[in-house]
Write a protein that binds this DNA or RNA. Structure first.
Ligand SMILES: NC(=O)c1ccc[n+]([C@@H]2O[C@H](COP(=O)([O-])OP(=O)(O)OC[C@H]3O[C@@H](n4cnc5c(N)ncnc54)[C@H](O)[C@@H]3O)[C@@H](O)[C@H]2O)c1
Ligand SMILES: NC(=O)c1ccc[n+]([C@@H]2O[C@H](COP(=O)([O-])OP(=O)(O)OC[C@H]3O[C@@H](n4cnc5c(N)ncnc54)[C@H](O)[C@@H]3O)[C@@H](O)[C@H]2O)c1
Lengths: 227, 227
DNA sequence: CGTATTTTGTGATTTGTTTCACATCAAATA
DNA sequence: TATTTGATGTGAAACAAATCACAAAATACG
C-alpha cells in the first residue's frame, strides 16, 4: 500500500497566465494601468474573480487607481520564474520534437532547451540549431545544466521508459506529449498534453451545440460584456 | 451591451478521455472487463468518481460484474464521434502545422485533416502528403467537405484575422495554437493550446515543490493506491 | 478641507464538484 | 431455491470555487 500524490494545476494559476498574456498585449498597445474590470473584460473573467485571484497570489493594487501593468508583469515574472532561467531537456526529435526545439517563445520566457536527445543515430546527425545527443549522454547533461524539467516527445511505446530514466537522473517535472498515462513517483509533476483530446473535445462541444439545446455536459458561463 | 457565452470543457469530460485511453491499453493487454476501482486506480481517480462520471454520461455497467471494456469503448466512440468522420482544416504550415499534419493519430480517431492552408507561396509548393492550399481556396474547401472544426497554427499576429475568416466561412470550433486570446462570437468554441504555459506551470510547481512545504497554490489529492 | 466618487480587497453567500455511504441488484454458492 | 457476496448507482454530505456585496482606502472636486 502506497500513497500517491497528484498535483493539479489550479484554475487560478491558469488564469494568471491568461492575465499575463493580456497584460503583455495591453502594454504593447501603450496602456499603463488596468482595473480589474478591464482585465476581466479582456479575458472573459469577472472583475471579482480577477481580484480574488490576485489576492490569492498576494498581488496588491491601488485603491481607486487600479493596477500598474509594469508592476503586475514584474510580479508575475517573479511568480513564474523567480528571476531565474530554467534549463530544459527535450527527448525525442521526431516531428513534434523538432517543431518544439525551434519554437522561439520558450527562450523569450526564460525557458531554455539546453539539449535534445534521440535514440535514432540518424536524428543525432541532423543539422539543427540545438545539438541532438544520444541517450547515453542524458545523465551527464542533466547534471551539468542542473536540469529539473523535461519534455517527452518520443513515441508512445517508449514514453514510460524514457520517463523512468529521466526521473532516475533527477528530473522533477515532465511535459508529456505522448498519449500515455505515465506512472511516476509521488513527488514528480507530470503535465500531459494530448492534442487528440483537445481536438476531440472541441468536436464534441460543436457537435452537441449544433444538434441539441441540452447542454448536459457543457457548462455555460454568461457574462455581461460591453463591446 | 452584448452577452458572451463561454464554453468550458468540464473535468468529467476530460476524465472520460482519460478512461478511454486507459481502456484501450487494457484491451490491448487482453483484459475484457473492468471495475470502477480498477479503472480509477489506473487513472488516478477515485472509484466513486468513475461511477459518477459514467452516470453523468449515462453509461451503465452490470451490478456486480463491472463494465465490459468493448462496450464502454463503443459507447465512448459514440459519445465523441457519433459514428461519423470529422473533417478538419489546418491553417498555417510552419513548424507546428507541418508536425500536426503528419500526426497519424488524428486519423486513427476519425479526425481527418482534409486540407491545409498557408499564405506563403513557398509552403504551398512543398512536397507533403496533404495538399497545402492558398487562403483563397478556404471557402470552397470548407463548404465542399462540410468542415466545422479548424486548427490554427499561424503566427501570433495573424491568428485573429484567420479566426475571423474561418468563422465567416462557417467554422464552429477552433483549436488555437497561437498564444493569443481570440475574440469570437458567442456560439463559437475555442480551445487554446498554449505550450509555453504548460511548461511554465510545471516549472512553477516543481519550483515551489522543491523550495517550500507550503503548497499554497497547488492542490494535493491523496488517494489510496495499491501497487 | 470635507464630501462624493470610484475601485480595491475580502468576508459571506451561492453555486458547483467530489466524496461518502448505502440501498439495490446480479451473480455465485450452497 | 435461498443465501451470501460484491459491485454498481445515486442521493446526501462535505468540500471547493466563484460570485456577491460592501467596508475601506485613495483620489477628485467643489
Ligand atoms: N506530431 C504531432 O503533431 C504530434 C501531436 C500530438 C502528439 N504527438 C505525440 O508526440 C510523440 C512524438 O510524435 P512525433 O510525431 O514526433 O513522432 P516521431 O515518430 O516523428 O518521433 C518520435 C521520435 O522519438 C524517438 N525515440 C523513440 N524511442 C526513443 C527512446 N526510447 N529514446 C529516445 N528517443 C526515442 C524516435 O527516434 C523519433 O525520432 C508521440 O508520442 C506522438 O503521439 C505528436
Ligand atoms: N513551433 C512550436 O513548437 C510551437 C509551439 C507552441 C505554439 N506554437 C505557435 O503555433 C503557431 C505556429 O508556430 P510555428 O512555429 O509553426 O510558426 P512558423 O512561423 O513556422 O509558421 C507559421 C506559418 O503560418 C503562416 N501564416 C502566417 N500568417 C498567415 C495567414 N494570415 N494565413 C495563412 N497562413 C499564415 C506562415 O506562412 C507560416 O508558414 C505560432 O503562433 C506559435 O506561437 C508553435
Amino acid at each position: 500500500m502506497k500513497q500517491i500524490t497528484k498535483y493539479v494545476i489550479k484554475n487560478s494559476l491558469k488564469r494568471i497566465f491568461l492575465y499575463r498574456a493580456c497584460l503583455v498585449r495591453l502594454k504593447r498597445m501603450g496602456v499603463e494601468k488596468v482595473f480589474s474590470f478591464t482585465l476581466g473584460h479582456e479575458t472573459g473573467v469577472s472583475a471579482a474573480q480577477v481580484r480574488k485571484d490576485f489576492s490569492e497570489f498576494g498581488i496588491k493594487g491601488n485603491k481607486r487607481g487600479g493596477y500598474e501593468i509594469d508592476e503586475l508583469l514584474t510580479i508575475m515574472e517573479n511568480i513564474f520564474h523567480k528571476n531565474k532561467d530554467h534549463n530544459i531537456v527535450l527527448i525525442g526529435m521526431g516531428n513534434m520534437g523538432q517543431s518544439l526545439s525551434k519554437y522561439s517563445r520558450f527562450i523569450q520566457r526564460n525557458m531554455n532547451i539546453v539539449a535534445t536527445f534521440d535514440i535514432d543515430p540518424f536524428k543525432q546527425k541532423m543539422r539543427s540549431e540545438i545539438q541532438v545527443y544520444p541517450m547515453n549522454r542524458l545523465k551527464e547533461i542533466i547534471e551539468r545544466f542542473r536540469v529539473k524539467v523535461a519534455i517527452i516527445a518520443v513515441t508512445e511505446i517508449s514514453a514510460q521508459e524514457v520517463a523512468d530514466e529521466l526521473i532516475r537522473h533527477g528530473i522533477m517535472g515532465i511535459v508529456n506529449f505522448a498519449p500515455v498515462l505515465l506512472k511516476v513517483p509521488q513527488n514528480i509533476v507530470v503535465n500531459n498534453v494530448n492534442l487528440c483530446d483537445e481536438l476531440e473535445s472541441v468536436i464534441y462541444i460543436v457537435h452537441n451545440n449544433m444538434k441539441a439545446d441540452s447542454f448536459k455536459n457543457i457548462e455555460l458561463l454568461y457574462k455581461d460584456m460591453r463591446y
